[in-house]
Amino acid sequence: MSELIERGAIPEGYKVEVFDGRVIMTPQSPEQDWTVSDVKDAVKASGIARERVFGDVLIAFPGENDAAPDLTIVDFDAERRKNSYSCLDVLAVVEVPSEPEDEKDYVRNVQKYGRFGIDFYMIADPFTTTVTLMSEPHAAGYGRVVEIPYGEQVTFTLATGERVEIGTGTFPTRDAGGA
């Protein structure tokens, strides 16, 4: 996947990930893009530098498939490696499912991000209009899971002491039928 990204071989508007040995290529919906944009704006408004917040950038997971989360927040001293970062530098990840009850976001990513100690994993689901915020990572996932309806504030404090506040009132919704 790294080679594809470096050669620019990924079609515009698509997100490509290798997951469990399969190449997953999905176009990003407008709802995904708008939600990620709203979250990124809120994270930067919380005082986190632009250089530490990005979307669809490759994150390396030693011994496992790499990932390109919808939005990633990295630590102050995160070291860029060409066009990627190590999962060890990741403080928080946000994903926006591309389909209802997306197994990748709700099962496999929960296990992977928890196992690698990513402190916060947030799923902003336009189908259920709910934000799921996970914390207290452990070997099989997360010890704490909080569901917050769209329209309410999501707040968490990173390991750096920085407080992130995300208003969800502008998050777009999407019909589970694909509309």
Rank of each mutant, 00 (worst) to 15 (best):
G141R: 04
G141T: 02
I73S: 01
R115V: 04
A49W: 00
A68D: 08
H138L: 05
T35V: 03
I166S: 04
R174I: 05
A60H: 11
E99L: 05
N109M: 15
W34T: 13
R7N: 09
E136F: 07
F156R: 05
P172G: 06
P30K: 13
D89Q: 00
R80F: 00
V146L: 08
P149I: 08
G55D: 05
D102T: 01
L58K: 15
A60P: 00
G177Y: 10
A139I: 09
F54R: 07
T132E: 11
K82E: 11
I123V: 15
P69W: 00
E51M: 04
K82D: 13
D20L: 14
A68N: 02
E12P: 01
K104Y: 13
R144N: 15
F116K: 03
V131R: 00
V93T: 11
F61T: 01
G178P: 11
E31S: 12
L91E: 05
R174E: 13
V53A: 00
V146G: 02
E95D: 14
Y85K: 07
A78I: 05
K82S: 09
K15S: 15
I166G: 08
D175W: 04
A176D: 05
T170E: 15
I148A: 00
V74Y: 01
E3V: 14
T170F: 01
V107S: 09
G114K: 07
M122D: 01
I24T: 02
V131E: 08
V96C: 02
E99G: 07
G63L: 11
S37Q: 10
D38R: 12
I59Q: 03
G114D: 02
S84I: 01
